[in-house]
Simulated scan of single mutants.
Amino acid sequence: MISGLGALDALSGPQRFGGATGPLAAAQPSVSASDFSSAVAEAANRTIHTLSQAESVSMTALEGGNVQARDVVDAVMSAEQTLQAAISIRDKIVTAYLEVSRMAI
């Protein structure tokens, strides 16, 4: 799993639907808006932390610090994967919002 998005795992399994299981669990979600927003905020914070860590490792290497090239590449690749996942999630949220806004009431 991509490290920056671990907070979204909090919304999986029976907890996602308030402990309900079975075919009707998805039809009656009881996750509050604050739970969703806190999960998204935590995912964003982890993404920012991963990006900051990659920047820090890169700057240390550029300044001549004791950092291996492999560590820099690993940090930058992790940051890139995390950022792309965050962008994909953002795009899905925007698409879902647009779909809901187009629904007839």
Results as ranks from 00 to 15, higher is better:
Ser34Asn: 12
Asp35Leu: 09
Asp35Glu: 14
Phe36Trp: 10
Ser37Arg: 13
Ser37Tyr: 02
Ser38Asn: 13
Val40Met: 01
Val40His: 00
Val40Leu: 11
Ala41Arg: 14
Ala41Gln: 15
Ala41Gly: 07
Glu42Leu: 06
Ala43Thr: 10
Ala43Ser: 09
Ala43Val: 12
Ala44Arg: 08
Asn45His: 02
Arg46Thr: 11
Arg46Leu: 11
Arg46Ala: 11
Arg46Lys: 08
Thr47Asp: 10
Ile48Gln: 05
Ile48Ser: 06
His49Phe: 13
His49Met: 09
Thr50Phe: 00
Thr50Ser: 11
Gln53Gly: 03
Gln53Ala: 11
Ala54Ser: 08
Glu55Asp: 03
Ser56Tyr: 01
Ser56Glu: 03
Ser56Met: 11
Val57Gln: 08
Val57Asn: 06
Val57Tyr: 00
Ser58Cys: 02
Ser58Phe: 05
Ser58Val: 04
Met59Phe: 07
Thr60Tyr: 00
Thr60Arg: 12
Ala61Ser: 08
Ala61Asn: 02
Leu62Ala: 13
Glu63Gly: 09
Gly64Pro: 01
Gly64Ala: 01
Gly65Ser: 01
Gly65Leu: 02
Asn66Gly: 07
Val67Arg: 07
Val67His: 04
Val67Asn: 08
Gln68Trp: 01
Gln68Asp: 15
Ala69Phe: 09
Arg70Lys: 13
Asp71Lys: 02
Asp71Trp: 04
Val72Lys: 09
Val72Met: 12
Val73His: 08
Val73Tyr: 10
Val73Ala: 11
Asp74Glu: 12
Asp74His: 01
Ala75Trp: 07
Val76His: 05
Val76Asp: 03
Met77Gly: 04
Ser78His: 01
Ala79Ser: 15
Ala79Ile: 07
Ala79Gly: 15
Glu80Ile: 05
Gln81Leu: 15
Thr82His: 06
Leu83His: 12
Leu83Ala: 13
Leu83Arg: 12
Gln84Phe: 10
Gln84Ala: 11
Gln84Met: 10
Ala85Asn: 07
Ala85Trp: 04
Ala85Pro: 03
